[in-house]
Amino acid sequence: MPLTKPNQQLRRDLKAIASNLEESCVDLGRLASRLSDADAIALMGLVGTLYEEADRLVGFADEVKTGLISRASKQTK
């Protein structure tokens, strides 16, 4: 079954946010290479967490695609 427009947009948004997080991780990794060992290790720990969060967002996007997650329609007052 094809996705509704709101669900298509939700999936695109989730994937775009995940991509932005991953790009930020690459930038932070470059920055970490210029830091002292202790600071670099701390920053790379944060980068690892951000990569995990990006993976979760991609998983949510997959759940939107399969219909497990959907955007509710707006209710009028």
Rank of each mutant, 00 (worst) to 15 (best):
M1Y: 04
M1E: 12
P2W: 04
P2E: 14
P2F: 08
P2M: 09
L3C: 07
T4V: 05
T4C: 02
T4F: 04
T4Q: 05
P6I: 14
P6A: 07
N7Y: 05
N7K: 05
N7S: 08
N7T: 05
Q8T: 10
Q9E: 12
Q9N: 07
Q9T: 15
Q9L: 12
Q9C: 00
L10S: 03
L10D: 06
L10H: 07
R11I: 04
R12N: 11
R12Y: 14
D13W: 12
D13Q: 14
D13M: 11
L14A: 02
K15Y: 13
K15C: 06
K15S: 09
A16K: 15
A16W: 04
A16I: 07
I17C: 04
A18Q: 02
S19P: 00
S19K: 14
N20F: 06
N20R: 14
N20P: 00
L21Q: 08
E22F: 02
E23N: 13
E23Q: 14
S24D: 12
S24N: 13
C25W: 02
V26Y: 01
D27L: 15
L28K: 01
L28E: 05
L28Q: 00
G29E: 10
G29L: 02
R30L: 13
L31I: 15
L31R: 09
L31Y: 05
A32L: 00
A32S: 04
S33P: 00
R34H: 13
R34T: 15
L35M: 13
S36E: 15
D37L: 11
D39E: 14
D39H: 06
A40Q: 04
I41N: 04
A42D: 11
L43I: 02
M44V: 03
G45W: 00
L46P: 00
V47E: 00
G48S: 08
G48P: 01
T49N: 07
T49C: 01
L50R: 04
L50F: 06
L50D: 02
L50N: 00
Y51P: 00
Y51A: 03
E52D: 09
E52V: 11
E53S: 07
E53T: 15
A54E: 00
A54V: 06
A54T: 02
R56C: 03
V58K: 13
G59R: 11
G59F: 04
G59N: 13
G59A: 09
A61D: 02
A61T: 04
D62M: 12
E63V: 05
K65C: 01
K65E: 13
T66R: 06
G67S: 05
G67I: 15
G67H: 08
G67F: 05
G67E: 07
G67W: 02
G67N: 06
L68W: 10
L68V: 12
L68M: 11
I69M: 05
I69C: 03
I69H: 03
S70E: 06
S70L: 09
S70R: 12
R71T: 08
R71D: 02
S73Y: 07
T76I: 11
K77M: 10
K77R: 13
